[in-house]
Design a protein around this nucleic acid. Structure first.
Lengths: 132, 132
DNA sequence: GTCCCTGCAAAAGTTTTGCATTGCG
DNA sequence: CGCAATGCAAAACTTTTGCAGGGAC
């Protein structure tokens, strides 16, 4: 049993969408992904993009994110464990790895009774260009 | 000069909305706040609720939150510095304080060049009732 | 009287859903 | 061939905006 075999049907649309997310340097929204994928496969529908992103996220091929106060979902092709830094000036987003010590999750568990599976940190500040 | 004087006009609608958010034990959405505030002040409009929540959040009277993958904004009357634990089973949310050591922000700054102003941690797991 | 606030309604934007057709496996 | 996936369009929601009326100061 291979670990990386997709448990879903592979189609040209899905491959194109996954490629777009993986090649994106920023953290594109569904609409941005929809627009970019038109270059590869003109005619692809918005619904397909949304359904595929949900599928890929459920299978851990991409990360679905809500960044800051922005209500729009964003997607990240980097599925390694990492966190995000947001610029309050221009909206830029950078990936950053912040390995919290396991004691932090332990403290949360004993304080709340929740069993913690994972965590994500979001930092808010100003990017180099916006520090004036 | 008092520090806690509101820099905006106090109206019955705004007082009612702030009271609803403060008394809420959960983390209600704008629609839920709209529904709950009808009990106090029937006839209040949705737009007023949205505008007031934005105002209160801008003045630090309430916290605006995006929790997990949920695109809907939620509001928290607890404005003390704290984080959140989300139940992946039932959607329950609990407040929890996780004071990260300042070295963490320093590490992010040197890794990304961003100047970090604040941060929020979200933990994902299962609440006591959903641990089966 | 002036200006801000409110409520209503419409608009804007994101995401979901229904359905006939297509095409992967 | 069977059935899941697609594309289109409409629907469902959340949130924002325009505007006339009303109230606070």
């Amino acid at each position: 049993m291979t670990l990386d075999a997709p448990a879903y049907r592979t189609t040209p649309q899905r491959e194109a969408i996954l490629a777009v997310v993986r090649e994106a340097g920023d953290h594109p929204s569904a609409r941005e992904i929809y627009e970019r994928v038109q270059v590869r496969r003109p005619g692809i529908g918005v619904a397909t993009v949304y359904r595929t992103l949900e599928l890929l996220a459920a299978h851990g091929r991409v990360l679905a994110l809500q960044l800051g106060d922005d209500p729009i979902a964003r997607y990240d092709g980097n599925v390694a464990d990492h966190d995000h830094v947001l610029c309050e000036g221009c909206g830029a987003v950078a990936d950053v790895a912040v390995p919290l010590p396991p004691q932090v999750a332990d403290a949360v568990e004993s304080a709340t009774g929740f069993q913690v599976r994972t965590q994500e940190v979001q930092f808010l500040g100003r990017c180099p260009a916006c520090r004036t």
